[in-house]
């Protein structure tokens, strides 16, 4: 059965696929859960000792969907300001244009969504400022499964 609603200004009987607000042939995004991931980074000095030393911080949520879900916001890798004394919300953070020694990474698996922050000292000791890194996330039932709803 057809179930279509045209966007404002279009005739539902003539509208092309991109001109429809609702189209029963296509899949909508359905929210499974939303929440917050947060890591509290301390003020610290990482001693490099002439080598490369990493210190990692992680927060995770187990989503229970048993498949790899789509999620918002579209945050992948972000270089953070290691000297910032202000807390950082990744949803509206403009990352450094050059690589820094503090990297945030958001990863998803069929079990978890993870916020991972890595601090690195390379050759020389590095002092980092204390700040909190927050990600407000929305996970969808829609997942990484191939799908082709091409409409001829």
């Amino acid at each position: 059965m057809k179930f279509r609603v045209a966007k404002q200004g279009f005739d539902v009987n003539m509208a092309k696929v991109g001109e429809l607000a609702i189209d029963e042939r296509l899949m909508t995004m359905k929210v499974a859960l939303s929440g917050t991931l947060e890591v509290d980074l301390p003020a610290e000095t990482i001693v490099a000792g002439g080598g490369i030393v990493n210190k990692d911080y992680t927060d995770t949520v187990t989503h229970g969907l048993n498949r790899v879900p789509l999620f918002f916001p579209m945050v992948g890798r972000m270089y953070l300001d290691p000297d910032s004394a202000s807390d950082i919300v990744l949803n509206d953070y403009r990352q450094s244009t050059t690589s820094t020694l503090e990297l945030a990474l958001v990863q998803v698996t069929d079990e978890q969504l993870r916020l991972f922050v890595s601090r690195t000292a390379i050759v020389v000791d590095k002092t980092f400022a204390a700040h909190k890194v927050t990600l407000y996330y929305t996970l969808f039932y829609n997942c990484l499964e191939e799908l082709d709803l091409s409409i001829s």
Binding site: T28, L147, D148, L149, I151
Partner: peptide, 14 residues
């Protein structure tokens, strides 16, 4: 509400 934008998935491919 059809007054609001609803993203519609057309294709997912690996």
């Amino acid at each position: 509400s059809s007054d609001f934008f609803t993203p519609k998935i057309y294709k997912i491919k690996k």
